[in-house]
């Protein structure tokens, strides 16, 4: 099972960015800034203002990733899937929704917030903006290495006819009572595809051998190391 990594994009405490213009490790702990529409899209995007913060960072990172790969523009829908791992999911959105629901015994329950209490909804936001018709799912599991979504993506590419998969992580800063020492708030996606893209140099080849992720011939211990290797920076 193998693929080329053709794009990387992120919204993390390190800032908003994409791989070909990177100058440091994007996966850092710290304060996470939630992007505005203008920080992601130059043009009008009528839906962006409705999105919850979880969707904003996930959609933003997916957008930067596709932009990095030269794959943002499209004319026909594409068989590209999205797999994202999340520890906290849309818990913040759940809490926001519960505030509206509990205040007046349900009278003021917000339909707009409720729509985003399913964490996979932002995958739909990305799919409709970029014409992505592949499989799409959020996965939750103990994932200290943060590579489960990438493993699943490589399997999906091997087992289906999808042309590519956006694979990554999405998490907002959790409520303090649930915070863990190794939290990395933010979102980062890699675009894994079967072949190279025109005019864009791939970062390298990623192979799944058993449980091992091997990038350009070297075994990767976690997502941080993989991203550092792609960007040729210190992990």
């Amino acid at each position: 099972m193998k693929a080329l990594i053709n794009g990387i994009g992120w919204i993390t405490p390190a800032g908003f960015g994409q791989g070909h213009a990177a100058n440091g490790q994007p996966l850092l702990a710290g304060e996470l800034e939630i992007p505005t529409r203008k920080q992601i899209f130059a043009g009008i995007d009528r839906r962006f203002g409705r999105l919850d913060d979880f969707s904003r960072i996930g959609l933003g990172a997916a957008t930067f990733c596709l932009r990095d790969a030269g794959a943002e523009e499209w004319s026909e829908k594409r068989r590209v899937g999205i797999v994202a791992a999340s520890r906290y999911g849309c818990l913040r959105t759940d809490l926001d929704y519960l505030e509206t629901m509990l205040s007046e015994q349900g009278k003021l329950a917000s339909p707009n917030i409720f729509a985003y209490t399913l964490p996979n909804c932002f995958l739909g936001e990305a799919a409709l903006r970029f014409g992505l018709t592949g499989n799409s799912m959020i996965i939750n599991r103990h994932d200290p290495d943060r590579v489960t979504a990438i493993r699943i993506a490589l399997e999906e590419l091997s087992w289906t006819d999808q042309a590519g998969i956006l694979a990554g992580i999405v998490d907002l800063t959790p409520p303090p009572e649930l915070a863990a020492d190794d939290d990395l708030p933010g979102s980062l996606f890699l675009l894994l595809e079967r072949g190279p893209r025109p005019r864009i140099e791939p970062y390298g080849e990623l192979v799944l051998q058993g449980d091992q992720l091997i990038f350009n011939g070297k075994e990767m211990s976690d997502l941080k190391e993989l991203v550092a290797s792609c960007l040729r920076i210190e992990s």
């Binding site: 999911g89 909804c121 799912m137 996965i139 939750n140 103990h142 649930l178």
Partner: peptide, 28 residues
Amino acid sequence: ASALFEPLLAKISRRFDLIDHGTNINAA
């Protein structure tokens, strides 16, 4: 903590006596 999926996965894994801690798939 039960607001997260990890404790639920652990509970299900224990109940079925499984080694795997499990993965939740959320596709609505």
